[in-house]
Amino acid sequence: MRAGARSAEWTRVGAGSLAVAVMLFPIYWMINASLQPRVAMLQTFPAFIPNPPILDAYRNIIDAQGPHVLVSCVVAGLSAIVSLTVAAPCAYAIVTFRMRWTTGFVLLLLLVQMMPNIVTPNALYAIFARLQLLNTYAALVLCDSTLSVPFAILLLRAFMVSLPKTFTEAAMVDGAGYWGAFVRVILPLSRNGLITAGLFCFLFAWSDFLFALTMSTKQRIVPITLGIYQFIGTHNTDWPSVMATAVLASVPPIVLLLFGQKYITAGLTGGALKD
């Protein structure tokens, strides 16, 4: 019996390792290629290990793609700030002022989150064109936040519901008022929730491609996602350089995973499922 349980456990370890190997292969393949010379990738037998690893591909692309990374950082950072600023007070209001419309409002947020995002640029292109907002940071930040504002409200609401009420009460007794209680008590207490929501807002905006494609028509403000896309179009056999660009665009999500794993798992299901 004991030996049987032992071997069952090893079967699980084996199956788990296989799943990880298959699921992470594309990522390994991307990093592997980015560290090799171009010729190695055009051979009939691709090299499975960079020997020796070289950084030529990164040197090739850094001048062209570096600025795009910077644009992405600015847009994603601003989008996270805007989303949290708009969402946090709203989440607090939903939790604290239980009003008639809160259930309806939460349903509306869930619905808005589910709308296909292709309809947003379709409508906003026309409006932004008239407002002369195309090809501006404002357009990208506003569009990118259409995903993250409803998400952040729902996530922060789920988080704030679990905060002990006594803290707010104490602040209110001290005459702080709602805003005082919110700024001095709720926000510091919600640090983890704010970090999670902020990480995801940043990630959403960082990953955006559709809005960059449609709202940034003049090549003035090009985030890294659009940068990769345009790069494949012109260098479609220089796979090491393309993969180096892809690695560059993946660095923030990977860093987020490493440093915020507990926040990530909370957020993955939080917005969609937790009450």
Partner: peptide
């Protein structure tokens, strides 16, 4: 849970975190 299962589960989330453009680009080459 089994040995390394927590680490494995964390690793399996990575594809979800990559920007779609990155995934699409890598698969385009695959």
């Amino acid at each position: 849970s089994f040995p390394l299962s927590t680490a494995m589960r964390a690793l399996l989330l990575v594809p979800w975190l990559l920007p779609l453009i990155v995934s699409a680009t890598v698969f385009q080459w695959i």
